[in-house]
Design a protein around this nucleic acid. Structure first.
Lengths: 211, 211
DNA sequence: GGCGTTGGGTGATTGCCGTTTAGTAGCGAT
DNA sequence: ATCGCTACTAAACGGCAATCACCCAACGCC
């Protein structure tokens, strides 16, 4: 009589994940393993074990390993975009916004080291080049917010050298270089990170922006 | 009668490599494949095929795949060191030498893209962390030449901000960031490379060095 | 009730990969 | 002649991503 009799008593199998609920479980497990063990260390089998399903089950929800990774990267970039947009909306001097964005960018990279490297230090061959369309689109929106702020500086004639684009790209690249090296060469005898960040920001802004 | 009878008619095997001569052949093939196909694409079997020996033969000359890669990296860094030393020895202004070194550094990276990425964008996990001793020592010598030149600038009181170390590291990191992004994100809508390099160098030197 | 459909799941398999093992061809020294 | 050594090989091992052929519980429908 009771409808609860339907419960799968005999089944030792995990209950169904109700579609995209299971997808979320996989992403969560995959993110932890990817971030903890890197691309090579995070095997499909490990992720599947963590979720409690067979390795094959992951191919129900993702085309291949790269697609899982890319979805994790997307989430990271979305955070970056949100952060940039929030700063862009502040009612303060454009130069101050530029400095805040660069600083927040470096903080983001240092606080999400593996996600950052997966997105911005992507070794050729790790991800199949063409599947990255969605991720790249997100990155472009991120850059658009950034370059928009630099354009404001150019518009008020405070760019000391270069175009808005080349200045924006140089500043971004410089900050990227600092965090990328800090992350990939952690054993190098670096000056204190805080000092490096300040020197970088001061140098860039003094070098590229006039008052 | 003729001593040439000894020739290995029946043996389809490649003649012996006379010790370290074969080692050179392997490195040459490996370098091409590593640079063309990246770390994952360059398999032991492909390299061995290219040389014309079995995959096992490579283990006669190298402990494992990473050791081959590291030796290639060493050669690249040696070039960089030689280049830096040559500039350091020129009888010109220290600031001019700093600019030349940074510019040559970027040229080197763009002309040896894969070697550069293998050395300076090394994903954690690709190489086993501890075997890199020799390579890192070379890198340190490279850095020593670089920081020595920046110290000269600090010594004559022309450093606008930061210490010699933090300034040297910031400038290096900034240039690294530019070439690293140019190499890893070739599809991005970059400003002309030449302009980016000039903006970067001008910005850095104006921002960090006084006249 | 019976019953076909279907979506989430599986174990076995394929085809690479790096690396290891056991063994062999050639050659100089004894 | 034969030992020992160096350079090399074929075959195998374990692990990987990905694919295959299947399986079964739940649901709608009669």
């Amino acid at each position: 009589m009771t409808t609860t009799l339907k419960k799968p008593q005999r089944s030792a199998r995990k209950p169904k994940g109700d579609g995209h609920l299971r997808r979320g479980e996989i992403l969560q497990a995959a993110e932890r393993i990817f971030l903890a063990e890197g691309y090579q260390g995070a095997t499909i089998r490990k992720i599947a074990d963590e979720v409690g399903v067979s390795s094959t089950a992951l191919y129900m929800h993702f085309r291949d390993k790269d697609e899982i990774l890319l979805e994790i990267c997307d989430r990271a970039i979305e955070l970056l975009l949100k952060q940039n947009s929030e700063i862009a909306a502040r009612p303060i001097d454009a130069v101050a916004r530029v400095r805040l964005m660069l600083d927040a960018y470096m903080t983001f990279a240092l606080e999400n080291p593996n996600a950052y490297q997966l997105v911005f230090c992507g070794h050729s061959g790790i991800v199949s080049e063409d599947k990255q369309a969605a991720t790249e689109a997100l990155g472009d929106r991120c850059y658009a917010v950034w370059v928009g702020t630099v354009r404001e500086i150019a518009a008020i004639g405070r760019l000391r050298t270069g175009t808005a684009d080349s200045a924006a790209q140089s500043m971004w690249a410089a900050c990227h270089g600092l965090v990328a090296l800090l992350l990939t060469k952690p054993t190098f005898h670096w000056a204190p990170t805080a000092e490096l960040r300040v020197v970088m920001l001061d140098g860039l802004l003094y070098g590229l922006v006039t008052d």
